[in-house]
Design a binder for these strands. Structure first.
Lengths: 193, 193
DNA sequence: TAGCACATGTAACTTGTTACATGATTAG
DNA sequence: CTAATCATGTAACAAGTTACATGTGCTA
């Protein structure tokens, strides 16, 4: 069982879903911080079934669509998920290609790089906006249901809070570099006169 | 040429180094945000030589140590590096396993999870401290050399600034979750009475 | 005398991405 | 008529990790 398998288990612990639905949910909620393609999901689900952590039932579809397989977590699966959550996590590596480019920024054209940084800022601001909207959506959903499993919703909220602060930090860093680049250009111009 | 090759080029553009030295420098400076093992570095360097982006000279070692290969960036290599830096970067995925565990936090034992979060906080605080120290070291190095390629040092500084703010953000988020867990425990205790 | 620093590499394995494959329905 | 949505999968490839391999000199 690898991380992907536990991600799927974590979602199935909230509600039973098909592989397709899992892919969609993952793209929407986890897209920017853990991209998973459907080609990974299907073998992983088969693995989970083989390990006895999930079962599935085939739903015959109307309108002659391909049959659905709805996956459900088993008790063994819940135990495995819990063990994974409680186990120590090895330190994360960020692996951000853009930061590495920034490290070699000095070899590139400064004016061009201002454009590149503006692009990145726009991208992360868009993500920020998206996450803020999703947080709002979760909040209203949370208020609507006064009973039930509210804790799982609180955790989803906390994840969005993290991604929001992450994107805010990213944008403000990019802005800092951009200001540096602009200032330097200014200084160069003064030198020339 | 993949990202790894350009990372190596980016370092070699600053100073010629051996594979072993590259591995050491990468571990020290890039460790927490782009881990690279030496087993990846050697084939990548061979690839760079084949592409004509680097050359190397063999340095015979005293004390009967294995011979060193010192790699140097070529003009073609500098061009390739620049093209990579100036090219648009596809959006980063964070891929943080701990966040995914947090998403499934509600299935685990709350008291145990407080311990897990305290561990993470300690880890990231340690990293934060490390980065702050390295930033200081870069600053003194930067002030010491009044001439030369100061811009590459400025960029290295900016990277450390990013990692520092990243870790600060991470720690403060973990603290938020921890407070939530503590509060919830408190509430449960009151309920019981 | 055990382990670490130096120095370079290969091979097997795991994980993730891209391309391919099928096939109906519905909206623009 | 083209693209998107629904729905599941396989296969080839790229990237990254772990284990193995060699050999000396220094330190605890």
């Amino acid at each position: 069982m690898n991380t992907l398998a536990y991600i799927l288990l974590g979602i199935l612990a909230r509600e039973p879903l098909s592989g397709y639905d899992l892919a969609r949910l993952l793209k929407k909620h986890f897209g920017p911080f853990w991209a998973i393609s459907h080609t990974q999901i299907y073998p992983a689900l088969a693995q989970l079934v083989e390990a006895g952590f999930t079962t599935y039932e085939i739903i015959e579809q109307q309108a002659r669509r391909p049959d659905k397989k709805i996956y459900q977590i088993t008790e063994a699966g819940q135990g495995a998920l819990r063990a994974w959550v409680e186990a120590p996590t090895s330190p994360t590596v960020i692996r951000d290609e853009f930061l590495l480019k920034a490290y070699s920024l000095w070899v590139a054209d400064p004016e061009h790089m201002q454009g590149i940084f503006r692009e990145q800022i726009a991208l992360h601001q868009e993500r920020l906006f998206m996450h803020e909207q999703e947080l709002e959506a979760k909040r209203t959903k949370y208020l609507a249901m006064s009973q039930g499993n509210s804790e799982s919703l609180v955790m989803a909220e906390l994840i969005f809070k993290y991604t929001i602060s992450y994107e805010q930090n990213y944008v403000s860093w990019c802005n800092g570099v951009l200001h540096y680049l602009e200032q330097r250009e200014e200084a160069h111009r003064v030198e020339e006169i």
